[in-house]
Simulated scan of single mutants.
Amino acid sequence: MERTATSRRGRLRRLGLLLAAVPVVIWAGYHLGEAGASWTAAWASLSDIGWRRLLLLGTVWLTGLWVHTFVLDASLPGLTHPRALTLNLSGSAVANLLPLGGVAGTVLNLTMVRGWGHTNRDFARFVVVSKVWDVAARLLLPFAAVLALLAAGRLHPWLPWLGITVPAALAGGLLVAASLGRSRPLLRLVTLASLAFRTIPGVRGAAWTDAVAALLDGVEELVRRRWRPLTAGMTGYCVSEGVLLWLCLTAVGLTVPVPVLLAGLAAARALTLAAVTPGGAGLVETGAIAVLIGLGTDPTGALAGVLLFRGFVFAAEIPVGGLAVLLWLATRRRGIRPNPA
């Protein structure tokens, strides 16, 4: 009974965050005009993009997704690249379509993986390893962007940004270290957070340390054997997304320096961690556009370029992921089963 009440409070809390995010996004979109952005001009710029340019952008987007399969393959021994791509697209489609749909996407992926002969334990380890590398990359990228901006002399003042990105980078490093078997610093930090949050009514933090330790159980051996493809795959995926964002900005007539491009990409990737709206919709676009404008990019061009970029990495994943689910269902009904991992 207590667990049911806690679960209900958690759902209400998440729903409250979603409802609170909607007016913030609407307000930010409305006030882009005050920064000089024109929605009419942005849509006109997008409508002028030819099909050859769109085909190139789509190819780069799909290439990035294929590169990311190396991370997923390394996280689940026996997983093939086509199945990894299916997992990625189907899970993203559900997460991008439904409010707080990440759990539903994970359940769908679990069903797929079990049908392919893997165990629940295999899947749990797969989720932990792939998410650790993904979250660590999202936390480390803003710090890299700040360093690039400092080197280019484009960040004033610089101290507040270092104050934000250095702790994030340290958190990413702690995650990677914990997956490699050096989990004590991370567990100490979790224990401190647990003690702090335990004083808040309705928040249960007492068991956080045990939960994190349980998640990391059995991960070390896999990561030590496969850290190279994990690192290479995640690095390649970040680079491919950077290339995609650069091509999207170029398609609407913008030329931005590499440090500014890196900052826009870092904002877009980091804000997806705030999974309040489906796929971070609204929050990601607003943050990335604000960063680009703040660093001197043309407001209308930044608006058009980021919308085009998100059209691929967010919107396009819904129909393509839906197709991946349909193909999986079709092969499942025909009784096509792979060899166990």
Rank of each mutant, 00 (worst) to 15 (best):
A5M: 12
T6W: 10
R8E: 12
L17N: 00
L19I: 03
L19S: 01
P23L: 01
P23E: 01
H31E: 09
T40F: 01
I49P: 05
R52N: 00
R52K: 06
L54E: 02
T59Q: 01
W66M: 10
V71C: 07
D73H: 11
L79M: 12
R83H: 10
R83C: 02
L85D: 02
T86K: 03
L89K: 10
G91A: 10
A93M: 12
A93G: 09
G101D: 05
G102Y: 02
T106Y: 02
T106I: 13
L108C: 01
T111R: 14
H118N: 09
R121T: 13
D122S: 15
F123R: 03
V128Q: 06
W133S: 10
W133T: 07
V135M: 06
A136T: 04
A137C: 06
P142L: 01
A144D: 01
A151W: 11
L155D: 05
P157G: 00
W158R: 14
L159G: 12
G163D: 13
I164H: 08
T165F: 02
T165D: 02
V166T: 14
V166S: 13
P167C: 12
P167F: 12
A169M: 08
L170A: 15
V176Q: 04
A178N: 05
L180C: 14
R182N: 13
S194H: 07
F197C: 13
P201T: 00
W208S: 07
W208A: 14
T209H: 07
D210P: 01
D210A: 15
A211S: 14
A211G: 11
V212I: 13
A213S: 15
A213R: 15
A213K: 12
A214M: 08
L215Q: 13
G218M: 10
E220Q: 13
R226V: 06
R226A: 14
R226C: 07
R228H: 11
G233Y: 02
G236N: 07
Y237Q: 05
V239R: 00
S240N: 03
L247A: 14
C248M: 09
L249M: 15
A251R: 01
L254K: 06
T255Q: 14
V256E: 10
P257Y: 11
P259W: 07
V260T: 14
A263R: 04
G264S: 12
R269W: 03
R269V: 08
A270R: 01
A270L: 15
L271A: 07
A275G: 06
G282P: 06
G282S: 11
V284T: 15
V284Q: 10
G287P: 08
A290L: 15
V291S: 08
T300S: 05
G301M: 03
G301D: 05
G301W: 02
A302I: 06
L303S: 01
L303K: 02
V306H: 06
F309P: 04
R310M: 08
R310F: 05
F314K: 04
P319H: 10
A324D: 08
V325I: 15
L329G: 14
A330H: 14
R332F: 09
G335A: 10
G335W: 06
N339Q: 14
